[in-house]
């Protein structure tokens, strides 16, 4: 795909050169883990002396439980910048130059998607670090091995691809920044709250839990949570994780194909 690499480098360059954007992107994971981890800590409701693991699918504390969710939400909220970046390029002029150049239309969009995935991965790394260093933070009660790292990386990359593609498809013909923010608000909050990202499914109303089971945010959050809490998985746990990752992979593949088709056919100045 011609033009993909130089465009990707341009995007990353713009990111690390903008100190505010870089800093907020890096501080945000700390905020989220600290705020979500304390504000939503449901184990406090149970009172002292209660074993939190009973509430939290075996996690010894709420932060350990929620890390998978926060990693996923980071992908969701950073992914939306893919859309706004496309609109910025259109409104500020560079899009006109890209379209006049002998490069694949899709590389214009995929450069944004890929730079978004890279940024999400960096944020994820910092987030895991942040969660480990804070008091009563992330622990790995079942140990930790290379396979677990691979599962977490796969889940984050897939969910990052899904959301970055989703928001770029939305922005492919859009000129109005307000419109995309409206859509982002409309999509992001339901995706966040109708999922297993923040709370165990036993806490949810059954109809809500039924819907949440089909939310990709749940698939990613649960896969990461499963390996963090259990370390080495049993075969039945593997089949759950396999199902979630498989579903994420299929969805990601569909989104990438959709992005490709939309970018090649529909992108405009």
């Amino acid at each position: 795909m011609s033009g993909l690499y130089p465009l990707l480098m341009r995007d990353l360059k713009k990111w690390y050169r903008n100190p505010v954007f870089l800093l907020t992107g890096l501080i945000q994971p700390f905020f989220w883990i600290a705020l979500f981890g304390s504000a939503m800590d449901i184990t406090r409701l149970a009172g002292p002396g209660f074993n939190p693991a009973l509430l939290l699918q075996g996690a010894p504390n709420y932060i350990t439980f929620i890390v998978g969710g926060v990693l996923t939400i980071t992908a969701l909220f950073t992914g939306m910048f893919t859309g706004t970046n496309i609109i910025f390029d259109r409104r500020l002029g560079p899009m006109g130059r890209f379209l006049a150049s002998p490069i694949a239309r899709s590389s214009i969009v995929f450069s944004k998607v890929l730079s978004s995935v890279i940024r999400i991965l960096i944020q994820a790394g910092i987030l895991v670090l942040a969660a480990s260093v804070i008091p009563n933070g992330l622990v790995f009660p079942g140990g930790f091995n290379l396979v677990d790292v691979l599962v977490i990386l796969t889940a984050i990359i897939l969910i990052a691809l899904i959301f970055s593609s989703l928001f770029s498809v939305i922005a492919i013909r859009m000129r109005e920044m307000n419109t995309i923010f409206g859509i982002v608000n409309l999509i992001n909050l339901p995706l966040l709250f109708v999922s297993y990202a923040m709370f165990p499914k036993d806490f949810m109303a059954s109809w809500l839990s039924d819907i949440a089971a089909y939310n990709p945010v749940s698939w990613s959050a649960e896969s990461i949570r499963m390996v963090i809490i259990n370390g080495s998985l049993t075969s039945s746990q593997w089949s759950s994780v396999g199902l979630w990752l498989g579903a994420l992979a299929i969805l990601a593949a569909l989104m990438v194909v959709l992005t490709y088709i939309m970018a090649e056919r529909e992108i405009r100045d």
């Binding site: 011609s2 033009g3 690499y5 130089p6 465009l7 341009r10 360059k13 713009k14 050169r17 903008n18 500020l92 002029g93 560079p94 006109g96 130059r97 890209f98 006049a100 150049s101 002998p102 490069i103």
Partner: peptide, 22 residues
């Protein structure tokens, strides 16, 4: 084109090199 197309966040030279790579 009639509209300006250079990326404001990059330098003049970087803009030239970016387009050259296309």
């Amino acid at each position: 084109p009639q509209d300006l197309t250079a990326d404001e966040d990059l330098s003049g030279l970087e803009n030239l090199l970016l387009v050259a790579s296309f």
